[in-house]
């Protein structure tokens, strides 16, 4: 069970995140949702504890190497092969000579995420979406207890969004780990997250099972977008926004 009491975060004198308590049972995926500037990335950085560790597992502090954090911004002009890039996920354990077991494990992760065909390609020759998938593979190779991913599918097409999120959910379930990820696509959040944490203006609006958090009026309140929450044939929720043709931000109209 993951638990974390995240403190307030300030940028200068502005409070950008109010205290948030997170509890997620092992094997589950927590989605962090909210409009732009809600504090999602700040919350994930705080949870990943780059500066100070906050995450606990069954009440015990979670060691740094048990946390796989993937930040939102990534810039990649490295002349490294995809296999080499994934191997860096085990940076601390790599010796001067790379062990055959590490190579096999990296190749297995690439195969697991459907990236084997890219193995020998140079990172600086990949598209943004392909680079993003390699970074996910790097995190999975670390085999962490807690995966913290900031918009892991932002550069991916629909096929790969579904593929990566399905694999991440399977990873959490089979390894009894926890995945916490910020997502903008509410339909994907509804499909792949067991629980959701809704943020607005740096404050928690609601946290709980996905079905309870995603209601039409709550989405309207937070995003000021009128939506219809429908049910797909497979039982998953689908969020359909309705365009308000003459209504825009701060009352400015576009005719």
């Amino acid at each position: 069970m993951l638990g974390a009491d995240l403190p307030s975060v300030f940028m200068g004198r502005t409070q950008i995140l109010h205290p948030v308590q997170i509890v997620v049972p092992a094997g589950q995926v927590l989605g962090v949702i909210g409009p732009n500037g809600a504090g999602k990335s700040t919350l994930l950085r705080s949870l990943a504890g780059l500066d100070k560790p906050h995450a606990k597992w069954n009440g015990m502090p979670l060691p740094r190497e048990q946390i796989g954090f993937m930040p939102q911004a990534f810039q990649m002009n490295a002349r490294l092969s995809v296999l080499e890039a994934v191997l860096l996920g085990r940076r601390e354990a790599l010796g001067w000579r790379v062990a055959q077991a590490d190579l096999e494990e990296a190749a297995h992760v690439l195969s697991y995420l459907g990236l084997s065909h890219l193995e020998g390609r140079s990172m600086d020759r990949l598209s943004g979406g392909q680079q993003q998938m390699v970074l996910v593979a790097q995190r999975v190779l670390r085999a962490p207890r807690l995966l913290v991913l900031d918009e892991p599918t932002s550069a991916l097409d629909l096929h790969h969004q579904l593929l990566i999120l399905r694999h991440l959910r399977t990873y959490a379930q089979t390894r009894q780990a926890v995945a916490v990820m910020a997502l903008h696509d509410l339909t994907l959040a509804a499909r792949f997250c067991d629980r959701l944490l809704l943020l607005k203006d740096g404050k928690e609006v609601m946290s709980g099972p996905t079905a309870e958090v995603l209601s039409e009026h709550r989405i309207d309140d937070c995003w000021t977008v009128s939506v219809e929450v429908l049910q797909a044939r497979d039982g998953c929720k689908v969020i359909v926004p309705h365009e308000r043709a003459t209504q825009s931000v701060e009352g400015v109209s576009f005719q």
Binding site: L50, L88, L135
Partner: peptide
């Protein structure tokens, strides 16, 4: 692989 990525790898 970038500062943010390297920092996130510990």
């Amino acid at each position: 692989m970038g500062d943010a990525n390297a920092a996130s790898l510990g």
